[in-house]
Design a protein around this nucleic acid. Structure first.
Length: 535
RNA sequence: GGGCCUGUAGCUCAGUCAGGUAGAGCGUCGGACUUUUAAUCCGAUGGUCGCGGGUUCGAACCCCGUCAGGCCCGCCA
Protein backbone atom coordinates (compact mmCIF):
# COMPACT_ATOMS: atom_id res chain seq x y z
CA UNK A 1 0.00 0.00 0.00
CA UNK A 2 1.22 3.48 -0.75
CA UNK A 3 2.32 5.47 2.31
CA UNK A 4 -0.49 7.99 1.90
CA UNK A 5 -3.04 5.18 1.82
CA UNK A 6 -1.53 3.70 4.96
CA UNK A 7 -1.94 7.04 6.73
CA UNK A 8 -5.49 7.35 5.43
CA UNK A 9 -6.36 3.87 6.58
CA UNK A 10 -5.13 4.64 10.04
CA UNK A 11 -7.23 7.82 10.06
CA UNK A 12 -10.28 5.88 9.00
CA UNK A 13 -10.10 3.86 12.22
CA UNK A 14 -10.50 7.05 14.20
CA UNK A 15 -13.51 8.55 12.52
CA UNK A 16 -14.98 9.86 9.34
CA UNK A 17 -14.30 13.56 9.56
CA UNK A 18 -10.74 14.77 9.42
CA UNK A 19 -8.69 17.93 9.25
CA UNK A 20 -5.27 17.45 7.71
CA UNK A 21 -3.05 20.35 8.50
CA UNK A 22 0.18 21.82 7.19
CA UNK A 23 1.96 24.97 8.22
CA UNK A 24 4.89 27.08 7.13
CA UNK A 25 6.49 30.25 8.41
CA UNK A 26 6.81 32.75 5.54
CA UNK A 27 10.17 34.08 6.72
CA UNK A 28 11.84 34.05 3.33
CA UNK A 29 11.65 32.53 -0.12
CA UNK A 30 9.85 29.24 -0.24
CA UNK A 31 11.78 26.31 -1.60
CA UNK A 32 10.98 22.78 -2.69
CA UNK A 33 11.61 21.60 0.85
CA UNK A 34 8.43 23.41 1.80
CA UNK A 35 6.77 21.59 -1.01
CA UNK A 36 7.29 18.33 0.84
CA UNK A 37 5.39 19.68 3.82
CA UNK A 38 2.43 20.69 1.75
CA UNK A 39 2.46 17.82 -0.72
CA UNK A 40 2.71 15.27 2.06
CA UNK A 41 -0.42 16.77 3.56
CA UNK A 42 -2.09 16.98 0.18
CA UNK A 43 -1.40 13.34 -0.57
CA UNK A 44 -2.71 12.15 2.78
CA UNK A 45 -5.85 14.21 2.19
CA UNK A 46 -6.27 12.80 -1.25
CA UNK A 47 -5.80 9.25 -0.03
CA UNK A 48 -8.27 9.87 2.79
CA UNK A 49 -10.79 11.20 0.30
CA UNK A 50 -10.29 8.13 -1.86
CA UNK A 51 -10.99 6.08 1.24
CA UNK A 52 -14.33 7.79 1.60
CA UNK A 53 -13.44 10.11 4.47
CA UNK A 54 -14.60 13.66 4.82
CA UNK A 55 -11.41 15.72 4.70
CA UNK A 56 -10.60 19.35 5.21
CA UNK A 57 -7.07 20.16 4.10
CA UNK A 58 -5.67 23.32 5.64
CA UNK A 59 -2.49 25.32 5.26
CA UNK A 60 -1.69 27.51 8.23
CA UNK A 61 0.40 30.52 7.37
CA UNK A 62 2.52 31.27 10.40
CA UNK A 63 2.36 35.01 9.93
CA UNK A 64 2.29 35.61 13.68
CA UNK A 65 5.88 34.40 14.00
CA UNK A 66 8.48 37.09 14.50
CA UNK A 67 11.24 38.10 12.10
CA UNK A 68 14.26 36.35 13.60
CA UNK A 69 17.02 38.45 12.15
CA UNK A 70 18.00 40.64 9.24
CA UNK A 71 18.53 38.06 6.51
CA UNK A 72 21.00 38.64 3.69
CA UNK A 73 18.27 39.61 1.28
CA UNK A 74 17.00 42.33 3.63
CA UNK A 75 18.28 45.87 3.93
CA UNK A 76 19.61 47.28 7.20
CA UNK A 77 16.26 49.04 7.73
CA UNK A 78 14.90 45.66 8.80
CA UNK A 79 16.87 45.89 12.03
CA UNK A 80 13.90 47.77 13.48
CA UNK A 81 11.54 44.86 12.64
CA UNK A 82 13.47 42.05 14.26
CA UNK A 83 11.06 40.46 16.72
CA UNK A 84 8.03 41.87 14.93
CA UNK A 85 5.42 39.64 13.38
CA UNK A 86 5.84 38.70 9.74
CA UNK A 87 2.24 39.56 8.98
CA UNK A 88 2.62 43.01 10.48
CA UNK A 89 5.69 44.40 8.76
CA UNK A 90 6.27 45.66 5.22
CA UNK A 91 7.55 43.43 2.44
CA UNK A 92 11.08 43.93 1.14
CA UNK A 93 11.50 45.53 -2.27
CA UNK A 94 14.03 44.14 -4.74
CA UNK A 95 16.81 46.16 -3.15
CA UNK A 96 15.90 44.85 0.30
CA UNK A 97 14.34 48.06 1.57
CA UNK A 98 10.84 48.00 3.07
CA UNK A 99 7.99 48.70 0.71
CA UNK A 100 6.13 51.19 2.86
CA UNK A 101 3.85 52.31 0.06
CA UNK A 102 2.18 48.96 -0.49
CA UNK A 103 2.21 48.23 3.21
CA UNK A 104 0.26 51.36 4.05
CA UNK A 105 -2.05 51.38 1.05
CA UNK A 106 -2.78 47.69 0.54
CA UNK A 107 -1.57 46.18 3.79
CA UNK A 108 0.90 44.20 1.68
CA UNK A 109 3.02 42.48 4.28
CA UNK A 110 6.26 40.59 4.50
CA UNK A 111 4.26 37.37 4.82
CA UNK A 112 2.17 38.15 1.71
CA UNK A 113 5.27 38.90 -0.28
CA UNK A 114 6.80 35.47 0.17
CA UNK A 115 3.55 33.59 0.27
CA UNK A 116 2.06 34.76 -2.98
CA UNK A 117 4.46 33.12 -5.44
CA UNK A 118 4.28 29.93 -3.42
CA UNK A 119 0.51 29.89 -3.67
CA UNK A 120 0.76 30.39 -7.41
CA UNK A 121 3.07 27.41 -7.63
CA UNK A 122 0.75 25.37 -5.44
CA UNK A 123 -2.23 25.94 -7.64
CA UNK A 124 -0.18 24.90 -10.63
CA UNK A 125 0.80 21.74 -8.78
CA UNK A 126 -2.83 21.05 -8.02
CA UNK A 127 -2.76 21.76 -4.30
CA UNK A 128 -5.69 23.79 -3.07
CA UNK A 129 -5.75 23.94 0.71
CA UNK A 130 -7.97 26.10 2.85
CA UNK A 131 -5.71 28.93 3.96
CA UNK A 132 -5.59 30.01 7.57
CA UNK A 133 -3.68 33.13 8.45
CA UNK A 134 -2.34 32.65 11.93
CA UNK A 135 -1.96 36.32 12.82
CA UNK A 136 -5.50 36.96 11.62
CA UNK A 137 -6.69 34.07 13.74
CA UNK A 138 -5.10 35.52 16.87
CA UNK A 139 -6.58 38.92 16.18
CA UNK A 140 -10.05 37.59 15.60
CA UNK A 141 -10.03 35.62 18.82
CA UNK A 142 -9.73 32.07 17.53
CA UNK A 143 -7.03 31.41 20.08
CA UNK A 144 -8.79 33.22 22.94
CA UNK A 145 -10.22 30.27 24.79
CA UNK A 146 -7.14 28.06 24.53
CA UNK A 147 -4.82 30.94 25.39
CA UNK A 148 -6.80 31.37 28.60
CA UNK A 149 -6.41 27.71 29.51
CA UNK A 150 -2.70 27.92 28.75
CA UNK A 151 -2.25 30.97 30.97
CA UNK A 152 -4.40 29.49 33.71
CA UNK A 153 -2.36 26.32 33.71
CA UNK A 154 1.01 27.93 33.15
CA UNK A 155 2.73 25.81 35.79
CA UNK A 156 1.58 22.52 34.36
CA UNK A 157 2.68 23.56 30.90
CA UNK A 158 6.04 24.68 32.16
CA UNK A 159 6.51 21.37 33.92
CA UNK A 160 5.58 19.52 30.79
CA UNK A 161 8.04 21.37 28.57
CA UNK A 162 10.85 21.13 31.11
CA UNK A 163 10.32 17.44 31.67
CA UNK A 164 9.94 16.37 28.06
CA UNK A 165 12.48 18.59 26.37
CA UNK A 166 14.80 18.43 29.39
CA UNK A 167 15.48 22.10 29.14
CA UNK A 168 15.10 24.61 31.88
CA UNK A 169 12.76 27.52 31.32
CA UNK A 170 13.63 30.90 32.82
CA UNK A 171 11.84 31.92 36.01
CA UNK A 172 9.84 34.61 34.26
CA UNK A 173 8.70 32.28 31.50
CA UNK A 174 5.01 32.52 30.74
CA UNK A 175 2.90 30.75 28.12
CA UNK A 176 2.07 33.99 26.37
CA UNK A 177 4.44 36.29 24.52
CA UNK A 178 3.04 39.82 24.66
CA UNK A 179 3.80 42.43 22.04
CA UNK A 180 6.06 45.13 23.48
CA UNK A 181 5.90 48.88 23.03
CA UNK A 182 7.34 48.50 19.54
CA UNK A 183 5.09 45.57 18.56
CA UNK A 184 7.97 43.15 19.01
CA UNK A 185 7.95 39.77 20.73
CA UNK A 186 11.55 39.83 21.94
CA UNK A 187 12.84 40.54 25.42
CA UNK A 188 9.52 41.23 27.08
CA UNK A 189 9.12 40.25 30.69
CA UNK A 190 5.71 39.13 31.87
CA UNK A 191 4.99 40.81 35.19
CA UNK A 192 1.50 39.59 35.89
CA UNK A 193 -1.63 37.91 34.58
CA UNK A 194 -5.24 38.90 35.17
CA UNK A 195 -7.44 37.42 32.50
CA UNK A 196 -7.65 38.63 29.78
CA UNK A 197 -4.61 40.80 30.40
CA UNK A 198 -0.97 39.79 30.58
CA UNK A 199 1.08 42.60 32.05
CA UNK A 200 4.57 43.19 30.73
CA UNK A 201 7.70 45.29 30.88
CA UNK A 202 9.98 45.59 27.84
CA UNK A 203 13.67 46.24 27.25
CA UNK A 204 13.00 49.94 26.79
CA UNK A 205 11.54 50.18 30.27
CA UNK A 206 8.00 50.57 28.94
CA UNK A 207 5.14 48.67 30.55
CA UNK A 208 1.75 47.65 29.29
CA UNK A 209 -0.92 44.96 29.15
CA UNK A 210 -1.61 42.48 26.40
CA UNK A 211 -5.15 41.21 25.81
CA UNK A 212 -4.79 37.53 25.02
CA UNK A 213 -8.18 37.43 23.32
CA UNK A 214 -7.26 40.09 20.78
CA UNK A 215 -3.96 38.92 19.45
CA UNK A 216 -1.85 41.44 21.30
CA UNK A 217 0.86 38.83 21.37
CA UNK A 218 0.95 35.11 20.72
CA UNK A 219 1.50 31.76 22.32
CA UNK A 220 5.10 30.55 22.18
CA UNK A 221 5.64 27.96 19.46
CA UNK A 222 5.43 24.88 21.66
CA UNK A 223 1.96 25.94 22.80
CA UNK A 224 0.91 27.75 19.66
CA UNK A 225 1.05 24.51 17.72
CA UNK A 226 -1.15 22.36 20.01
CA UNK A 227 -3.52 25.32 20.40
CA UNK A 228 -3.97 25.39 16.62
CA UNK A 229 -4.79 21.70 16.65
CA UNK A 230 -7.46 22.52 19.16
CA UNK A 231 -9.40 25.34 17.61
CA UNK A 232 -9.03 24.05 14.06
CA UNK A 233 -9.72 20.46 15.05
CA UNK A 234 -6.63 19.03 13.38
CA UNK A 235 -6.64 15.22 13.29
CA UNK A 236 -3.57 14.64 11.16
CA UNK A 237 -0.43 16.59 10.52
CA UNK A 238 2.80 15.84 8.69
CA UNK A 239 5.82 17.74 9.94
CA UNK A 240 9.56 17.83 9.43
CA UNK A 241 11.92 15.69 11.39
CA UNK A 242 13.06 18.71 13.33
CA UNK A 243 9.73 18.77 15.13
CA UNK A 244 9.50 15.04 15.32
CA UNK A 245 12.50 14.16 17.45
CA UNK A 246 11.98 12.97 21.00
CA UNK A 247 11.84 16.06 23.19
CA UNK A 248 10.91 18.10 20.14
CA UNK A 249 7.83 20.18 19.74
CA UNK A 250 5.54 17.29 18.85
CA UNK A 251 6.53 15.44 22.02
CA UNK A 252 5.57 18.38 24.19
CA UNK A 253 2.71 19.33 21.92
CA UNK A 254 0.85 16.07 22.31
CA UNK A 255 0.81 16.44 26.07
CA UNK A 256 0.03 20.13 26.01
CA UNK A 257 -2.85 19.40 23.66
CA UNK A 258 -4.34 17.20 26.35
CA UNK A 259 -3.83 19.89 28.98
CA UNK A 260 -5.69 22.23 26.67
CA UNK A 261 -8.47 19.71 26.41
CA UNK A 262 -8.15 17.92 23.08
CA UNK A 263 -6.44 14.99 21.43
CA UNK A 264 -3.23 15.51 19.44
CA UNK A 265 -3.35 14.73 15.71
CA UNK A 266 -1.93 11.64 14.09
CA UNK A 267 1.66 12.57 13.29
CA UNK A 268 3.72 11.77 10.21
CA UNK A 269 7.36 12.78 10.33
CA UNK A 270 9.08 13.45 7.06
CA UNK A 271 12.74 13.82 6.15
CA UNK A 272 14.23 16.85 4.48
CA UNK A 273 15.00 17.48 0.88
CA UNK A 274 18.53 18.43 0.04
CA UNK A 275 20.01 19.78 -3.11
CA UNK A 276 22.29 17.23 -4.68
CA UNK A 277 25.83 17.81 -3.58
CA UNK A 278 24.99 20.90 -1.58
CA UNK A 279 23.39 19.71 1.61
CA UNK A 280 20.12 20.76 3.15
CA UNK A 281 18.10 23.50 1.64
CA UNK A 282 18.18 26.72 3.56
CA UNK A 283 16.69 30.09 2.81
CA UNK A 284 19.37 31.90 4.71
CA UNK A 285 22.34 30.44 2.83
CA UNK A 286 20.66 30.95 -0.50
CA UNK A 287 21.04 27.26 -1.19
CA UNK A 288 17.57 26.88 -2.59
CA UNK A 289 15.50 25.92 -5.54
CA UNK A 290 12.13 27.54 -5.41
CA UNK A 291 8.97 25.75 -6.43
CA UNK A 292 8.59 28.30 -9.18
CA UNK A 293 12.07 27.66 -10.46
CA UNK A 294 11.51 23.91 -10.29
CA UNK A 295 8.29 24.28 -12.25
CA UNK A 296 10.12 26.12 -14.98
CA UNK A 297 12.11 22.96 -15.54
CA UNK A 298 9.63 20.15 -15.03
CA UNK A 299 5.88 19.80 -15.16
CA UNK A 300 3.94 19.59 -11.89
CA UNK A 301 3.22 15.87 -12.17
CA UNK A 302 6.90 15.11 -12.10
CA UNK A 303 7.46 17.28 -9.08
CA UNK A 304 4.60 15.44 -7.41
CA UNK A 305 6.18 12.13 -8.32
CA UNK A 306 9.37 13.19 -6.57
CA UNK A 307 7.46 13.43 -3.30
CA UNK A 308 5.02 10.60 -3.92
CA UNK A 309 7.54 7.92 -4.74
CA UNK A 310 9.61 8.32 -1.59
CA UNK A 311 8.29 7.32 1.76
CA UNK A 312 8.21 10.37 4.01
CA UNK A 313 11.00 9.11 6.25
CA UNK A 314 13.40 8.90 3.32
CA UNK A 315 15.61 11.87 2.65
CA UNK A 316 15.27 13.16 -0.90
CA UNK A 317 18.12 14.51 -2.92
CA UNK A 318 16.84 16.89 -5.51
CA UNK A 319 19.06 16.89 -8.53
CA UNK A 320 18.33 19.48 -11.17
CA UNK A 321 20.68 17.83 -13.64
CA UNK A 322 20.66 14.22 -14.77
CA UNK A 323 18.50 13.22 -11.83
CA UNK A 324 15.69 15.21 -13.33
CA UNK A 325 15.98 13.35 -16.61
CA UNK A 326 15.86 10.05 -14.81
CA UNK A 327 12.89 11.17 -12.77
CA UNK A 328 11.00 12.44 -15.78
CA UNK A 329 11.68 9.30 -17.76
CA UNK A 330 10.59 7.23 -14.80
CA UNK A 331 7.34 9.15 -14.83
CA UNK A 332 6.80 8.32 -18.49
CA UNK A 333 7.48 4.66 -17.93
CA UNK A 334 5.14 4.51 -14.97
CA UNK A 335 2.42 6.39 -16.79
CA UNK A 336 2.58 3.94 -19.65
CA UNK A 337 2.10 0.91 -17.42
CA UNK A 338 -1.20 -0.84 -16.99
CA UNK A 339 -1.18 -1.54 -13.26
CA UNK A 340 -4.58 -3.16 -13.12
CA UNK A 341 -3.55 -5.67 -15.67
CA UNK A 342 -0.30 -6.36 -13.87
CA UNK A 343 -2.08 -6.87 -10.58
CA UNK A 344 -4.52 -9.27 -12.18
CA UNK A 345 -1.67 -11.69 -12.81
CA UNK A 346 -1.62 -14.70 -10.53
CA UNK A 347 2.10 -15.14 -10.80
CA UNK A 348 3.15 -12.15 -8.75
CA UNK A 349 4.92 -12.94 -5.52
CA UNK A 350 3.78 -11.06 -2.45
CA UNK A 351 6.73 -8.72 -2.73
CA UNK A 352 6.25 -8.04 -6.38
CA UNK A 353 2.61 -7.31 -5.77
CA UNK A 354 3.46 -4.78 -3.08
CA UNK A 355 5.83 -3.03 -5.44
CA UNK A 356 3.29 -2.80 -8.21
CA UNK A 357 0.70 -1.50 -5.76
CA UNK A 358 3.09 1.14 -4.47
CA UNK A 359 3.96 2.29 -7.94
CA UNK A 360 0.28 2.50 -8.83
CA UNK A 361 -0.39 4.40 -5.61
CA UNK A 362 2.39 6.86 -6.30
CA UNK A 363 1.06 7.50 -9.78
CA UNK A 364 -2.42 8.18 -8.41
CA UNK A 365 -0.80 10.98 -6.45
CA UNK A 366 0.94 12.60 -9.38
CA UNK A 367 -2.04 13.99 -11.25
CA UNK A 368 -2.69 17.64 -10.54
CA UNK A 369 -6.37 16.82 -10.55
CA UNK A 370 -7.40 14.28 -7.94
CA UNK A 371 -8.80 11.14 -9.51
CA UNK A 372 -7.53 11.91 -12.97
CA UNK A 373 -5.39 9.33 -14.70
CA UNK A 374 -1.74 10.12 -15.18
CA UNK A 375 -1.12 10.82 -18.82
CA UNK A 376 1.86 9.54 -20.68
CA UNK A 377 3.11 11.80 -23.42
CA UNK A 378 4.95 8.99 -25.18
CA UNK A 379 7.97 11.22 -25.51
CA UNK A 380 10.77 10.77 -23.05
CA UNK A 381 12.60 13.72 -21.58
CA UNK A 382 15.75 12.48 -23.23
CA UNK A 383 14.18 12.44 -26.62
CA UNK A 384 12.55 15.80 -26.17
CA UNK A 385 15.82 17.30 -24.95
CA UNK A 386 17.38 16.09 -28.14
CA UNK A 387 14.68 17.48 -30.37
CA UNK A 388 14.55 20.77 -28.54
CA UNK A 389 18.25 21.23 -29.06
CA UNK A 390 18.27 20.32 -32.73
CA UNK A 391 15.04 21.95 -33.86
CA UNK A 392 14.89 25.66 -33.41
CA UNK A 393 11.17 26.03 -33.86
CA UNK A 394 8.44 23.99 -32.30
CA UNK A 395 6.81 23.02 -35.58
CA UNK A 396 9.88 21.03 -36.58
CA UNK A 397 9.80 19.21 -33.26
CA UNK A 398 6.19 18.21 -33.81
CA UNK A 399 6.71 17.10 -37.38
CA UNK A 400 9.62 14.96 -36.31
CA UNK A 401 7.55 13.32 -33.59
CA UNK A 402 4.76 12.94 -36.05
CA UNK A 403 6.77 11.25 -38.72
CA UNK A 404 8.32 8.85 -36.27
CA UNK A 405 4.82 7.89 -35.22
CA UNK A 406 5.41 8.76 -31.57
CA UNK A 407 2.76 11.44 -31.47
CA UNK A 408 -0.35 11.94 -33.51
CA UNK A 409 -1.34 15.40 -32.46
CA UNK A 410 0.22 18.06 -30.32
CA UNK A 411 -1.50 18.24 -26.97
CA UNK A 412 -1.29 21.31 -24.74
CA UNK A 413 0.53 19.04 -22.34
CA UNK A 414 3.24 18.35 -24.89
CA UNK A 415 3.56 21.98 -25.84
CA UNK A 416 3.88 22.81 -22.18
CA UNK A 417 6.57 20.23 -21.73
CA UNK A 418 8.53 21.53 -24.67
CA UNK A 419 8.36 25.05 -23.27
CA UNK A 420 9.79 23.85 -19.98
CA UNK A 421 12.40 21.83 -21.78
CA UNK A 422 13.60 24.86 -23.71
CA UNK A 423 13.77 26.76 -20.45
CA UNK A 424 15.78 24.02 -18.84
CA UNK A 425 18.21 23.82 -21.72
CA UNK A 426 18.77 27.54 -21.40
CA UNK A 427 19.39 27.30 -17.67
CA UNK A 428 22.50 26.49 -15.69
CA UNK A 429 20.86 23.27 -14.49
CA UNK A 430 20.87 21.48 -17.82
CA UNK A 431 23.41 18.66 -17.57
CA UNK A 432 26.44 18.87 -19.81
CA UNK A 433 26.04 15.19 -20.48
CA UNK A 434 22.80 15.92 -22.31
CA UNK A 435 24.08 18.88 -24.22
CA UNK A 436 24.83 18.23 -27.83
CA UNK A 437 28.39 19.14 -28.58
CA UNK A 438 29.89 19.02 -32.02
CA UNK A 439 33.65 19.15 -31.70
CA UNK A 440 35.64 22.13 -32.90
CA UNK A 441 38.91 20.20 -33.02
CA UNK A 442 39.26 16.50 -33.81
CA UNK A 443 39.56 14.24 -30.81
CA UNK A 444 42.94 12.65 -31.38
CA UNK A 445 42.32 10.19 -28.62
CA UNK A 446 39.22 8.78 -30.31
CA UNK A 447 40.72 8.77 -33.76
CA UNK A 448 43.79 6.83 -32.70
CA UNK A 449 41.63 3.84 -31.99
CA UNK A 450 40.40 3.57 -35.57
CA UNK A 451 41.24 0.39 -37.40
CA UNK A 452 41.85 0.15 -41.12
CA UNK A 453 38.17 -0.32 -41.96
CA UNK A 454 37.13 2.63 -39.89
CA UNK A 455 39.67 4.84 -41.58
CA UNK A 456 38.23 3.85 -44.94
CA UNK A 457 34.74 4.59 -43.71
CA UNK A 458 35.79 8.03 -42.56
CA UNK A 459 37.21 8.89 -45.95
CA UNK A 460 34.18 7.46 -47.70
CA UNK A 461 31.75 9.28 -45.44
CA UNK A 462 33.52 12.58 -45.82
CA UNK A 463 33.25 12.34 -49.56
CA UNK A 464 29.60 11.29 -49.39
CA UNK A 465 28.64 14.11 -47.10
CA UNK A 466 30.52 16.58 -49.20
CA UNK A 467 28.48 15.53 -52.19
CA UNK A 468 25.07 15.22 -50.56
CA UNK A 469 22.25 17.68 -50.16
CA UNK A 470 22.46 19.26 -46.71
CA UNK A 471 19.22 18.04 -45.25
CA UNK A 472 18.46 15.47 -42.59
CA UNK A 473 17.27 12.80 -45.01
CA UNK A 474 20.28 12.91 -47.29
CA UNK A 475 22.72 13.10 -44.43
CA UNK A 476 20.98 10.21 -42.75
CA UNK A 477 21.33 8.18 -45.92
CA UNK A 478 24.94 9.07 -46.57
CA UNK A 479 26.36 7.97 -43.25
CA UNK A 480 25.39 4.27 -43.27
CA UNK A 481 25.98 4.10 -47.02
CA UNK A 482 29.61 4.96 -46.42
CA UNK A 483 29.95 1.65 -44.61
CA UNK A 484 27.74 -0.38 -46.91
CA UNK A 485 29.86 0.57 -49.89
CA UNK A 486 32.68 -1.21 -48.12
CA UNK A 487 30.53 -4.17 -47.11
CA UNK A 488 30.66 -3.10 -43.50
CA UNK A 489 27.79 -2.69 -41.07
CA UNK A 490 26.02 0.64 -40.85
CA UNK A 491 26.68 0.49 -37.15
CA UNK A 492 30.39 0.96 -37.71
CA UNK A 493 29.69 4.05 -39.79
CA UNK A 494 27.88 5.68 -36.91
CA UNK A 495 30.63 4.73 -34.55
CA UNK A 496 33.08 6.52 -36.84
CA UNK A 497 30.77 9.50 -37.16
CA UNK A 498 30.34 9.91 -33.41
CA UNK A 499 34.03 9.55 -32.75
CA UNK A 500 34.92 12.09 -35.40
CA UNK A 501 32.22 14.67 -34.83
CA UNK A 502 31.43 14.40 -31.14
CA UNK A 503 34.39 12.56 -29.69
CA UNK A 504 32.12 9.91 -28.18
CA UNK A 505 31.35 6.22 -28.61
CA UNK A 506 27.73 6.83 -29.35
CA UNK A 507 25.28 9.64 -29.34
CA UNK A 508 21.96 11.02 -30.45
CA UNK A 509 20.48 10.93 -33.91
CA UNK A 510 23.11 12.61 -35.98
CA UNK A 511 21.37 13.60 -39.17
CA UNK A 512 18.97 16.21 -37.78
CA UNK A 513 21.74 17.73 -35.72
CA UNK A 514 24.12 17.97 -38.63
CA UNK A 515 21.38 19.42 -40.80
CA UNK A 516 21.12 22.29 -38.34
CA UNK A 517 24.85 22.93 -38.57
CA UNK A 518 26.87 24.61 -41.30
CA UNK A 519 27.85 22.08 -43.92
CA UNK A 520 31.25 23.64 -44.47
CA UNK A 521 32.16 23.43 -40.82
CA UNK A 522 31.28 19.76 -40.61
CA UNK A 523 33.19 18.91 -43.76
CA UNK A 524 36.17 20.87 -42.50
CA UNK A 525 36.06 18.98 -39.22
CA UNK A 526 35.98 15.64 -41.05
CA UNK A 527 38.95 16.62 -43.18
CA UNK A 528 40.81 17.64 -40.07
CA UNK A 529 40.07 14.22 -38.65
CA UNK A 530 41.44 12.48 -41.69
CA UNK A 531 44.61 14.54 -41.48
CA UNK A 532 45.30 13.72 -37.87
CA UNK A 533 44.85 9.98 -38.16
CA UNK A 534 48.25 8.31 -37.92
CA UNK A 535 49.01 5.92 -40.79
C1' G B 1 24.95 13.43 27.89
C1' G B 2 19.85 11.80 26.22
C1' G B 3 16.88 10.50 21.97
C1' C B 4 15.16 9.77 16.73
C1' C B 5 15.95 8.27 11.63
C1' U B 6 18.87 5.70 7.99
C1' G B 7 22.32 1.44 6.45
C1' U B 8 19.50 -4.47 1.54
C1' A B 9 22.41 -5.56 -6.04
C1' G B 10 27.06 -0.71 -9.28
C1' C B 11 22.84 3.38 -8.21
C1' U B 12 17.76 4.69 -6.15
C1' C B 13 14.87 2.05 -3.11
C1' A B 14 10.69 -1.98 -1.67
C1' G B 15 10.38 -5.76 1.86
C1' U B 16 11.02 -4.89 8.84
C1' C B 17 4.79 -3.16 12.04
C1' A B 18 1.92 -9.24 11.83
C1' G B 19 9.63 -14.03 11.25
C1' G B 20 8.49 -18.68 6.33
C1' U B 21 12.69 -19.70 -0.76
C1' A B 22 16.27 -11.99 -1.08
C1' G B 23 12.39 -8.13 -4.77
C1' A B 24 11.69 -3.87 -8.29
C1' G B 25 13.34 0.18 -11.36
C1' C B 26 17.67 2.22 -13.30
C1' G B 27 22.59 0.87 -14.83
C1' U B 28 25.76 -2.86 -17.02
C1' C B 29 26.33 -6.85 -20.53
C1' G B 30 24.37 -9.73 -24.70
C1' G B 31 20.92 -10.18 -28.70
C1' A B 32 17.19 -8.24 -32.26
C1' C B 33 16.09 -4.05 -35.42
C1' U B 34 19.49 -0.98 -39.34
C1' U B 35 18.05 5.69 -43.79
C1' U B 36 20.78 5.31 -36.99
C1' U B 37 22.86 3.92 -32.16
C1' A B 38 20.86 8.83 -25.71
C1' A B 39 15.22 5.23 -29.54
C1' U B 40 12.43 0.48 -29.29
C1' C B 41 11.92 -4.77 -28.14
C1' C B 42 13.91 -9.41 -26.00
C1' G B 43 17.27 -11.84 -22.73
C1' A B 44 21.05 -12.13 -19.08
C1' U B 45 24.01 -10.28 -15.05
C1' G B 46 23.95 -8.96 -10.25
C1' G B 47 23.27 -9.04 -2.74
C1' U B 48 27.84 -12.32 3.79
C1' C B 49 20.49 -7.64 3.88
C1' G B 50 26.63 -2.42 7.97
C1' C B 51 29.05 -5.76 11.73
C1' G B 52 28.86 -9.26 16.21
C1' G B 53 25.99 -12.03 19.43
C1' G B 54 21.10 -13.96 21.20
C1' U B 55 15.87 -16.02 20.72
C1' U B 56 13.71 -19.56 17.13
C1' C B 57 12.64 -25.55 13.55
C1' G B 58 13.47 -20.99 10.73
C1' A B 59 15.80 -13.94 11.27
C1' A B 60 16.83 -8.59 6.40
C1' C B 61 12.59 -8.68 9.96
C1' C B 62 12.30 -9.79 17.03
C1' C B 63 16.09 -8.85 21.37
C1' C B 64 21.10 -7.10 23.07
C1' G B 65 25.53 -4.91 21.62
C1' U B 66 28.47 -2.35 18.04
C1' C B 67 30.13 0.69 13.71
C1' A B 68 28.97 4.47 10.07
C1' G B 69 26.03 8.66 8.16
C1' G B 70 22.16 12.30 9.06
C1' C B 71 19.18 14.88 12.61
C1' C B 72 16.91 16.64 17.25
C1' C B 73 16.90 18.19 22.66
C1' G B 74 17.21 27.49 20.95
C1' C B 75 14.74 28.78 15.73
C1' C B 76 14.00 25.91 10.90
C1' A B 77 9.73 22.10 6.32
Amino acid sequence: MHWADVAAQSLSHKGKKHVVSTGITPSGEFHIGHLREILTGDMISRAAQNAGLDVDFVFIIDSADPLRKVYDFLGPEYEQFVGNQLGAIPAPKKDGSPDWGRFENENWTYANHFLEPFLTALSEIGVNPRLIDNLESYRSGCFAELSKIACDRADEIRECIERISSRELPDDWFPWSPLNSKKGLDKVKVTGYEYPLVHWKDEYGETGSSDITKGEGKLPWRIDWPAKWGWIGVTCEAFGKDHGAAGGSYSTGREIAQLLGHEPPQPLVYEWISLKGQGAMSSSTGNTIGPIEALELVPPEILRLLIAKSKPNKAIEFDTGMGLVTLADEYERLAARDFENELASEELSRRQRVQVEDAAGAMRMTSTVSGQEALATAVTFRHLALLAQTKKNDEDVWSSLNSSGAVESVTPQLQDRLNRMRHWIGSEHFPEEMRINILEQPSVQMLQRFDADEKKILANMTAALEACEWDAASIGASIPQAARDLDLSPRSAFKVAYASLMGTEKGPRLAPILAEMEKLEIIALLHACIRCIPD
